[in-house]
């Protein structure tokens, strides 16, 4: 773990102003922001722990808990909302038996909501990992999940 954080910090030249990007890289590495990594980062960049924690909790992109194998992003942007995005989110919550932000008991999925992914024309949209699913309806939810 030590070396990964050091590597990332080095890549950004220990530039404190790149904290968001550094955290993103750490998250990409571990799938979440492990506490030891953040402590390490605090020392490396000479930023108090409290300030790193503040950043990690301010931005929605960061997770301080380990996330599932697959990340489901259900879009709740306006275009998706007016076409029933909320119902899709509820349906996912029901079928996965988790709330938004939660991870399924088997660690397979983490359900997250996002406020627009830039493909509004095809709403409601769900993204699982890197794959997009457009024009979602409730009855498409189950077959979609079965693919994973």
């Amino acid at each position: 773990m030590k070396d990964k954080v050091s590597e990332i910090v080095k890549k950004y030249n220990k530039d404190k102003s790149q904290l968001v990007s550094i955290l993103q890289d750490i998250q990409a590495e571990y799938n979440y922001l492990p506490r030891e990594a953040l402590n390490k980062l605090s020392k490396k960049l000479d930023i108090p722990q409290s300030q790193i924690y503040s950043m990690a909790t301010f931005f929605r992109a960061f997770s301080l808990k380990p996330r599932g194998k697959h990340i489901i992003n259900v879009c709740l942007g306006t275009a998706c909302h007016v076409r029933g995005g909320e119902l899709i989110a509820e349906s996912l919550e029901r079928q996965l038996n988790v709330k938004r932000g939660g991870t399924t008991a088997d660690g397979k999925f983490t359900l997250e909501s996002v406020n627009c992914m830039g493909c509004c024309a095809t709403g409601p949209v769900v993204k699982i990992d890197e794959e997009y699913f457009g024009h979602m309806t409730n009855d498409k939810v189950e077959p979609m999940l079965k693919k994973y």
């Binding site: 506490r35 108090p48 722990q49 409290s50 300030q51 790193i52 924690y53 503040s54 909790t57 301010f58 301080l64």
Partner: peptide, 20 residues
């Protein structure tokens, strides 16, 4: 000059708190 605490979270759940 210590920064032992910070404002964590945002919006309605924002609060001053120690790290973690």
């Amino acid at each position: 000059g210590v920064s032992a605490i910070s404002l964590v979270n945002r919006g309605i759940s924002k609060e001053p708190a120690p790290p973690f």
